[in-house]
Simulated scan of single mutants.
Amino acid sequence: MSDSNTSDFTNPSTFILLGIPGLEVEHTWLSVPFCAMYIIAILGNSTLLFTVKRERSLHVPMYYFLCMLAITDLVLSTSILPKTLSIFWFNSREINFSACLTQMYFIHCFSVMGSGILVAMAFDRYVAICHPLRHSTVLTNPVVAKIGLAVVLRGAMLVLPSPFIARRWPYCTTNIIPHSYCEYMAMVKLACADIRISSYYSLSVVLSVIGLDVFFITVSYTQILRAIFSLPTKDARLKAFGTCGSHLCVILAFYIPGLFSFLTHQFGHNVPLHFHILSANMYLLVPPMLNPIIYGVRTKEIRGRLLHLFTHKGT
């Protein structure tokens, strides 16, 4: 490759996102479920935030954490869907280099935050079930605020190196990203340099965050299940388990698509590229869509408040 060609993409002004490589013909059809999931996520999480804000009886730690999760879900889905839909509908594939780095940072930062919020929610359930008399004194509003701040700072600081690492690589071969959004490894793989530091950094963040968070959640729920099964009556056990059911469903909705996407990316070398990209999108789109539905259906307090709000407006 000549020097002139090599220097073309050393500091690219834009990247080109391909959408779902191999399924370009199906982009219009794929936009339908993508758009539907986005609309459900926006409406569901906004309704959840509105309901908790309006009802003072829901101003307790469990619903504060749920609001944090709803905000995280809104940011995550909004970080990728508008650009993805513009690719599907208008073939608008160009994205500014700085905008690409910003999108990448928000996606990974808020994914880490979402995992941290699930840990905080598991701790809330642990205190509520294992130490119910101390719940109001342990999880006071200042403590909840400090936990929320710690979750935000952890996500912001852990992911902060990623745009700086990605920016320093020379992109001297191509500026085409075979993805529907600016995913970290999909971007740095375009660099014509030894990117092992990026690979090690990415793997260490995933293992430290997901590994530690899943460990803490597992420890919390081990103690919770012990406490539940030690209750004297079946009705008491069912009632206690019911308070954790929604959170367990949200945990599964968050980690299972993420684990599936990570495993196919790391070890599924024979898996078609479009399947990798679809699984990566589902990881970011399915939880924001499901979380408000899960809590709306399974949590009687939210169901009751929503019915009260709508029936009150109608009278």
Results as ranks from 00 to 15, higher is better:
Ser79Asn: 03
Asn270Asp: 15
Leu17Ala: 04
Met289His: 03
Ala120Gln: 05
Leu43Cys: 08
Ile117Asn: 01
Leu30Lys: 01
Arg168His: 14
Tyr201Phe: 10
Gly314Asn: 14
Thr233Pro: 03
Pro82Val: 13
Leu190Gln: 05
Ile71Glu: 00
Tyr295Glu: 06
Tyr105Ile: 12
Leu118Thr: 06
Leu74Gln: 01
His276Asp: 06
Ser136Leu: 05
Leu153Pro: 04
Ala122Gln: 04
Ile302Asp: 04
Pro292Asn: 10
Thr222Phe: 15
Ala253Met: 00
Ala120Ile: 01
Asp73His: 01
Ile117His: 03
Glu301His: 03
Tyr181Ser: 01
Lys189Gly: 05
Ile251Arg: 00
Asp3Pro: 02
Leu101Asn: 00
Val209Thr: 13
Phe15Thr: 08
Ile39Trp: 09
Leu225Ser: 12
Asp235Met: 07
Glu24Trp: 11
Leu18Gly: 02
Thr233Tyr: 02
Tyr63Ser: 03
Gly19Asp: 15
Ile228Thr: 11
Thr174Phe: 06
Ala99Phe: 08
Pro292Val: 12
Leu66Ile: 00
Ser46Pro: 08
Phe97Lys: 02
Phe34Gln: 12
Ala128Gln: 02
Ser198Glu: 00
Thr10Ile: 09
Val214Thr: 12
Leu49Glu: 11
Met282Lys: 04
Phe123Cys: 09
Asp213Phe: 08
Ser111Val: 14
His274Tyr: 15
Asp73Cys: 14
Phe260Trp: 13
Ser13Phe: 12
Thr264Gly: 04
Ser2Arg: 01
Val297Thr: 08
Asn96Tyr: 07
Ala236Gly: 07
Gly268Lys: 09
Ile39Glu: 13
His308Lys: 14
Thr299Met: 12
Leu225Tyr: 13
Arg167Gln: 11
Ser220Tyr: 05
Ala41Thr: 07
Gly245Pro: 06
Ser46Gly: 07
Pro292Cys: 12
Tyr200His: 06
Ile42Pro: 13
Thr14Met: 01
Ile165Asn: 02
His59Met: 02
Lys53Gly: 12
Phe106Lys: 02
Val205Arg: 01
Val119Thr: 07
Gly304Trp: 09
Thr218Val: 13
Thr218His: 03
Leu309Met: 13
Phe241His: 10
Ile228Tyr: 05
Val75Met: 03
His135Val: 08
Ala166Trp: 02
Pro232Phe: 14
Asn96Ala: 09
Ser77Cys: 08
Ala227Cys: 07
